[in-house]
């Protein structure tokens, strides 16, 4: 596709460039909206569009006032703290439980594999509003609503499918003769796990954990139903902000979140390369 062969007809040439232009527009559709809010979050005026001063690159058109706004509102600070309490806690729980289960699921002797797998993935499929409403009724009957514990457990359940999927995918290329080799060389099962299995599945575990983290960090429906005043998370604060009166502070928060997803994506990309390299050595 990179270079057109010399025998290409004019019509094909025209079509080729039209096609590339169409793809360019689709990429613009994908990425443009996310990039647009970044400069807008530095707007000096409380508008959601580019002012004349911004377009002429006048420094007076730009400011950090919306970022100051985040720092000067205790509600935003508290919600950021909450997100960083709930997210990691749910991630650790989901990753540990999910990795263990994936190890079991990828064993050839696992009974009822299909049924169990579809139960474990279901939190990703069931509409969030049903999950949230169900959790609200059930968790309030055991006094878990308006507690950190309740939100953490709920987010763990929502993050688990991602861990199970990524770790089983990593394990699908796993060579089981390695564990047998390790055992025949005299390693105990736990030694085999930490020295042979874990290093090979670590990239999958980490990317599963990142998925679980972003799921919790981004989740708002369950938080609407389960959280009290004390457990308000960043997405909930944003949701409330957008519904009441959308202010450019939201754009500043959104920019910070975009920066975070860029960071996570970079980590994931590095992991993928490492994984490919490792597999390349083995092959």
């Amino acid at each position: 596709m990179a270079a057109l062969p010399p025998y290409t007809s004019t019509l094909e040439r025209v079509w080729h460039y039209t096609y590339l232009a169409i793809c360019g527009l689709i990429f613009l559709f994908l990425i443009g909206p996310i990039l647009v809010i970044i400069p807008l979050s530095f707007n000096a005026e409380p508008y959601f569009t580019f002012t004349h001063a911004m377009l002429t690159f006048d420094p007076a058109g730009y400011s950090l006032r919306w970022y100051h706004n985040i720092l000067s509102h205790p509600a935003w600070i508290q919600s950021i703290k909450n997100s960083f309490i709930i997210g990691p806690a749910a991630t650790v729980l989901a990753t540990v439980l999910g990795t263990l289960a994936a190890l079991g699921l990828s064993r050839p002797q696992m009974p009822f594999r299909g049924v169990i797998m579809s139960i474990l993935i279901s939190p990703m499929i069931v509409p969030l509003i049903i999950s949230a409403a169900g959790m609200f009724f059930f968790y309030s009957s055991v006094d878990l609503t308006q507690t950190y514990m309740g939100v953490i457990l709920a987010h763990t359940a929502l993050g688990i499918p991602f861990v199970v999927i990524t770790v089983t995918a990593t394990l699908s290329g796993f060579d089981h003769s390695l564990t047998r080799a390790s055992a025949s060389l005299g390693a105990s099962p736990s030694h085999t796990f930490f020295k042979v299995i874990l290093p090979l599945v670590t990239p999958g575990v980490i990317s599963g954990a990142l998925f679980a983290f972003i799921t919790s960090f981004d989740e708002v429906v369950v938080v609407i139903f389960l959280s009290g005043v004390k457990q308000r998370t960043l997405p909930l604060e944003m949701w409330a902000g957008i519904r009441e009166q959308i202010s450019p502070t939201i754009l500043a928060v959104a920019t910070i979140l975009v920066a975070m997803s860029v960071l996570l994506l970079t980590v994931l990309e590095l992991l993928r390369r490492r994984n490919e390299r490792l597999r390349g050595i083995r092959a």
Binding site: F27, L30, I31, P33, I34, V36, I37, L40, F48, T49, I214, F217, D218, V220, P235, M238, W239, I242, I246, I250, L251, A254, L257, V258, S261, V262, L264, L265, L268
Partner: peptide, 19 residues
């Protein structure tokens, strides 16, 4: 370009469309 939107918060992406 495909994965960045995938990893960006749903609320952020909804907000950008409002903007």
């Amino acid at each position: 370009m495909v994965l960045l939107p995938f990893w960006t918060s749903l609320l952020v992406r909804t907000t950008t469309w409002i903007v």
